[in-house]
Amino acid sequence: MGGLIPCFRNPPDPTIMWKVVFFTLIFFCIDSTFAVTHSLQYVYTGTSGIPDFPEFVSVGLVNGEPIDYYDSKVRNVTSRQDWMTKAVHADYWEQQIQYSRDAECEMRKSIAVAKKLFNHTEGIHTLQVMYGCDWDDETGATGGQDQYGYDGSDFIALDFKTMSFVAPVQQAVPTKVKWDSNRDRLEEEKVYFTGICTEWLKKYVSYGKSTLERTVRPEVSLLQKDPSSPVTCRATGFFPRGIVVTWRKDGVDMHSDVEEGETLPNGDGTFQITSKLTVKPEDWKMNSYSCVVQHNSLQDDIAVLLEEKNIRTNQGGVSWGIIIGCVAAALALVAVVVGVVLWRRSRTGYGKAGTSDTDSENSSQQQPKA
């Protein structure tokens, strides 16, 4: 059986090709704590069997912030940042629309092939691709990501050290064999990830410098549903997303009885995170427990002592607050597929798109997203 359908992306030189396949990841986010590293990711999502949900969604992110959005229902690329709207010209968006529509077409073909590879004939299925690059503006170091998945599990990914694909499941082997054998295309991908993508990432960072490099202090609170429930330390309203939340007992970091949540976006461009501590009331009343938050907006760490006067009892409020934040974020990013799934572009047009037969390497010549 042949591999998945490759879709191709080209840099400003229209002879360089690339692919669009798919990856599903539960709430994809790159969490770079206290990073001077900037990142650019594009996420394509294809779905099958979900009534009234877009069959294709594309989201671009810079430093974890959405910069553009497209789906198969709207069929239009929209800006998600004021600085993007001001920085690029109208023809940029026109090109993005065309590339996204091409990618939409390829994703429909690709999800059909993926279902055959897994012998799936019905039900709900998702496919996603996440690709992009990062750049350390202090050291100049760069890196890339090129990952794919099916139904929430890893399918295939490019190992940039060996420039070969890794197939964690047997169904991905035909795709790995096909893609590994095309050394010219692998070299073209290397050029894209180490050069073109990074160049556009730097441009995006310069466009949105005042927004992307701002800092906003977190608000920290202790929440508990009832005396027998875990104590939740919640940090919210902070930017950038990199943050460290730890529990300490008598000044020593704790690693057991602690459950740290994901860093989630709020609806206003800031982030939130929670960390739960399971501890008996008599224990924390006899010892010194504290929640410590580290963030690059802070000159000194925030430490909140676990004592009754610092705990807000919120019947159901903790979970609902998080749920509301997640829903707002989902609406803002519009990149959720089957539960919580999230999984980009540039001035001259940067679309991962093309046309291809199931078993061929032919493609239309497209310019890439940055």
Rank of each mutant, 00 (worst) to 15 (best):
K202F: 10
K202I: 13
K202A: 09
K203Y: 11
Y204C: 08
V205G: 01
S206N: 11
S206M: 12
S206E: 15
Y207F: 09
Y207P: 12
K209R: 15
S210V: 09
S210T: 14
T211M: 11
T211L: 05
E213D: 12
R214E: 13
T215H: 13
V216D: 09
R217Y: 09
R217C: 15
R217D: 13
P218G: 04
P218E: 03
E219L: 12
V220H: 09
V220I: 09
L222P: 02
L223D: 10
L223E: 10
L223I: 01
K225Q: 15
S229V: 14
S229T: 14
C233L: 12
T236C: 03
G237M: 04
F238Y: 10
F239D: 00
F239Y: 10
P240S: 11
P240A: 10
R241I: 15
R241M: 15
R241S: 15
G242F: 04
I243T: 01
I243M: 11
V244G: 02
V244F: 04
V244H: 08
V245I: 07
V245N: 06
V245S: 04
T246Q: 12
T246R: 14
T246H: 11
W247V: 10
R248L: 04
D250E: 08
D250R: 01
D250W: 06
D250Y: 04
D250A: 06
V252G: 10
M254T: 01
H255Q: 10
H255Y: 05
H255W: 03
H255C: 13
S256C: 11
S256I: 10
S256W: 11
D257K: 10
D257P: 00
E260P: 00
G261N: 02
G261C: 06
G261P: 07
G261D: 06
E262S: 14
T263A: 04
L264C: 04
D268Q: 02
T270I: 07
T270L: 13
F271K: 08
F271L: 06
Q272C: 11
Q272M: 12
I273S: 01
I273D: 00
T274Q: 05
T274R: 00
S275A: 03
L277E: 09
T278K: 00
T278I: 02
V279W: 06
K280L: 15
P281D: 12
P281F: 04
P281E: 09
E282Y: 08
E282V: 09
W284P: 05
W284V: 01
K285Y: 02
K285L: 03
M286T: 08
N287I: 00
N287M: 03
N287Y: 12
S288I: 12
S290Y: 13
S290I: 05
S290N: 15
V292Q: 00
Q294V: 07
H295Q: 12
N296F: 08
N296W: 02
L298E: 07
L298N: 05
Q299R: 10
D301S: 14
A303H: 04
V304M: 05
V304W: 01
V304H: 00
L305C: 13
L305M: 13
